[in-house]
């Protein structure tokens, strides 16, 4: 799993150095790029397993780099940017970013996101059972267990948690979840989503008020951990 190659595209030397040291000490191979153009060339030459992309690049916007890369590059791209508005985050995720982390960031959090992203893109043949903490989701028999006890879920509740679990560790936007589960994508329908998330938390979380599995990304979406 490790020894995966990661390309960092960031114009700030301090961030490049920090990422190089952090990633290399976690056994990843690291390639660095300072500009968007250089980054795109390096992706073409190296086909890294994962790209960490800054949005504020000197030569062209990271959003553009992301779009260019997504024409042919299908592995993980994690955005690491100071831009923290919901609009920017949603735009990047809609344009194919695997995940989004804002600066300042905790390196522990970044490493967790990298592991999750690599897992999603590397294991294309999905494991039928996803286990995390006290939860176990069996995709082949559509069964969810908490502390080894089966939990009764409605069809929609199951579909929602299964979709989140298949993308474990990765943020899924409201729009995406609404489209996949209910077949519509209007922003105004996020109230459905909230009601179902609240119901799921009551059934699946030890403490529904401080969820540890279904995490809210405020204004953006949800993440299954």
């Amino acid at each position: 799993m490790n020894n995966a190659e990661i390309l960092v595209i960031d114009d700030e030397p301090q961030i490049r150095k920090l990422l190089k040291i952090t990633l290399e000490s976690n056994d990843y191979k690291v390639v660095l790029a300072e500009t968007g153009t250089e980054g795109v060339h390096l992706v073409a030459n190296h086909t890294p397993d994962l790209v960490i992309l800054d949005l504020g690049l000197p030569d062209k916007s990271g959003h553009l780099v992301l779009k260019d890369l997504r024409e042919w590059y299908d592995k993980s791209i994690i955005i690491l940017s100071v831009q923290d508005s919901e609009a920017d985050i949603i735009k990047a995720l809609d344009n194919g970013a695997t995940d989004y982390l804002t600066k300042p960031f905790r390196t522990g959090e970044l490493l967790a996101r990298i592991r999750a992203s690599l897992r999603i893109t590397q294991n294309t043949d999905l494991q039928p059972i996803i286990a995390t903490g006290d939860l176990e989701i069996d995709l082949s028999s559509r069964m969810v267990k908490r502390n080894d006890t089966p939990v009764k879920l409605t069809a929609t509740e199951y579909n929602l948690v299964a979709l989140l679990a298949k993308n474990q560790g990765r943020v899924l936007t409201h729009q995406f979840l609404l489209k996949e589960i209910w077949g519509f994508g209007s922003q105004n329908e996020t109230q459905y989503l909230r009601v179902f998330i609240a119901q799921l938390r009551k059934k699946l979380e030890e403490n529904p008020n401080s969820p540890v599995h279904i995490i809210t990304e405020s204004g953006v979406g949800y993440r299954f951990v």
Binding site: Q187, T190, R194, S210, T216, G219
Partner: peptide
């Protein structure tokens, strides 16, 4: 304003 429907309990716990 980015208006959307929210659960107050969740906001307070955050």
């Amino acid at each position: 304003l980015q208006l959307n429907w929210y659960d107050v309990n969740e906001i307070v716990y955050n």
